[in-house]
Nucleic acid binder design. Structure first.
Lengths: 331, 331
DNA sequence: ACCCCGTATGATTGCGCAAACATCACGATC
DNA sequence: GATCGTGATGTTTGCGCAATCATACGGGGT
């Protein structure tokens, strides 16, 4: 910066003003400075700026996974919304989802580099409370609403999505709907299972035993093999807690000669890109990760302006996408 | 830090030493300081540390996409390897892959916050050269080897992977292999197409016209519909440049009553999780994104130590995974 | 002609930390 | 017993920038 100032024949402070786009700089002066910047190849030092201003221009994102599709899409949306708001993203992955590790990651990011924190909490933590500095804007997504009463939450309308899926199947004459749940460690999986139960209860339908997977197509395949090997009269519809398990389950049914949807209807959750192109095309509940991401950023920006006031949970609507994997009940 | 020093009855410098884990501090003193840190709730300020040391403890990652599976897995691997090396990840997405935008993103990250840069270049840029500060460690992945002769490159063994896939099909008696390519903007797509051509040439097989998709299952579906509607005697094997297009293509063939693999064999590229669980299970070339990620980080660490000396391109091996979507040529 | 105020610019200071050097005490060595 | 080395600690300084205050200039109002 000193070099630029010398070359342009102005003070360092004026260079700073130009670099920050202040208006109170003469046109001619600004041009001189900009030219000098280009000549010198000046790049402002973010650390020094952060030290002087107390702002980092970055949000931290804590996630247990990046490659799981939902997480990837959420992160992408957060990154895009953050960039548009002038913030960069500091991504921190936590290998094992214990509250201690998450709190450590938070501490790490918090003191260090960020103006706010998005926690993609995907999995239930072992301890109820997170240690978060009181002044750090924070938002939690992909978590039980009740888990963190003190922090703002953004999440998909799990209950509404599941209700639509189950009602869709019941409306087509299925007497009940089986369920392949996500892992017990996932709060989203819990919510979907509860909502499935509730929807069946409301309709007066029997509630079959839950099969449990781990989100992977492999686990859906296994669940499908188990279901196929203990044939039951009322197995005509299955709601899988995500699309990948639904895909695996469909492969198992194919292998066992169970036709979809003639014998059994299958519905997933997420609407991943492939859902439309597997065979048969998968009926599913579309999550709007783009909205989730931008709401997270918006929530952080509001906290930066106004502090962590009590905010309502933000629920992101879903949409049932009906394709060929679901149809009328047989007979 | 001053508060901690006062409370512990030592100098600020000693607190700094404890915070940085230096060994030359007396046990008793260290304990006093650690206690004081806990009492005060001390968190070192990353910006100040970076300013003083000139190191940020972070790598920048520039990517055009986060949610595309390969990118997501690469980013996850980079994040994990970086964390293990004590670095965090500053993620920057670039919406439109022009050299100008990428250079701007680089400038943004470079001066600002990072000790090194991973560019996941996925798409061919409009201008040949990137503007990268001469002192910034950098590594480019997912790009043409020849594009950036001056920078270290890490990439999958595209040629080897394609060769294995094509040879696998030819060895089963197919007279030739059709190809659904990735988008013209992708260097990986180019490489795979060239390798496919070369493999056919080597075998003396005819080279059918290339169909082009955009990596999505939807585009694979369209390509499949087109292929299915112009039936040809020699259409008995298709190599798709990624798994998602292969999945879409298989749906199209299902719809048109073309059996896989009895009528047509299909091979993909990537080995995404679902590949094993679509119907039929997809033969594909497994990319090792985990290795790519850790090699990227390793390359950066070496540059930090020894400067940007000329490094050989690092080629990551692949593996052909044979499943049920490929079989002997009909008749 | 005077003052006042707004605009453009410069000078000083401190953000929180670690590098570099200085100091001190103590034990080993000849 | 003088010298040296080693480990533990303190003091000074500067990293690069923006906040703050200070200064200079010029035009409009009275």
């Amino acid at each position: 910066m000193a070099d630029v100032a010398k070359l342009a024949g102005v003070s360092a402070q004026t260079v700073s003003r130009v670099a920050n786009g202040r208006t109170n700089v003469d046109h001619a002066t600004r041009d001189k400075v900009l030219t000098a910047m280009r000549v010198v190849g000046y790049q402002p030092n973010g650390a020094a700026r952060a030290l002087a201003t107390g702002r980092f221009g970055a949000f931290g994102v804590i996630s247990f996974s990046v490659s799981r599709i939902g997480d990837a899409r959420t992160i992408e949306a957060i990154a895009t919304a953050s960039r548009d708001a002038g913030f960069s993203i500091n991504l921190m992955t936590v290998e094992r989802p214990t509250a201690g590790r998450v709190s450590a990651a938070i501490a790490n990011l918090a003191g260090q580099n960020v103006d706010g924190l998005v926690i993609i909490q995907a999995e239930i933590l072992d301890a109820p409370s997170l240690v978060i500095g009181p002044d750090l804007p924070v938002v939690i997504t992909d978590t039980y609403p009740s888990t963190h009463p003190d922090y703002p939450i953004v999440d998909t309308d799990q209950e509404g999505g599941v209700r639509r899926a189950v009602d869709h199947l019941l409306a087509m004459g299925h007497r009940t709907v089986w369920h392949v749940a996500g892992p017990a460690t996932s709060s989203a999986a819990h919510e979907r299972t509860s909502a499935w139960q509730a929807a069946l209860h409301r309709a007066g339908a029997p509630v079959p035993a839950v099969r449990r997977g781990d989100w992977s197509a492999a686990s859906g395949y296994q669940a499908g093999m188990v279901l196929a090997s203990e044939p039951r009269e009322d197995l005509t519809a299955v709601f899988c807690a995500n699309d990948q398990m639904a895909i695996g389950l469909m492969r198992a049914f194919h292998e066992r000669g169970i036709r979809i949807p003639e014998d059994v209807s299958v519905v997933g959750f997420d609407d991943i890109d492939e859902a439309e192109y597997v065979w048969p095309p998968l009926t599913t509940v579309r999550q709007r990760f783009d909205i989730i991401g931008s709401l997270c950023v918006q929530t952080l920006l509001e906290q930066i302006d106004r502090g962590r006031e009590s905010q309502p949970m933000r629920v992101v609507p879903v949409e049932l996408v009906v394709r060929d994997s679901s149809g009328p009940a047989p007979r």
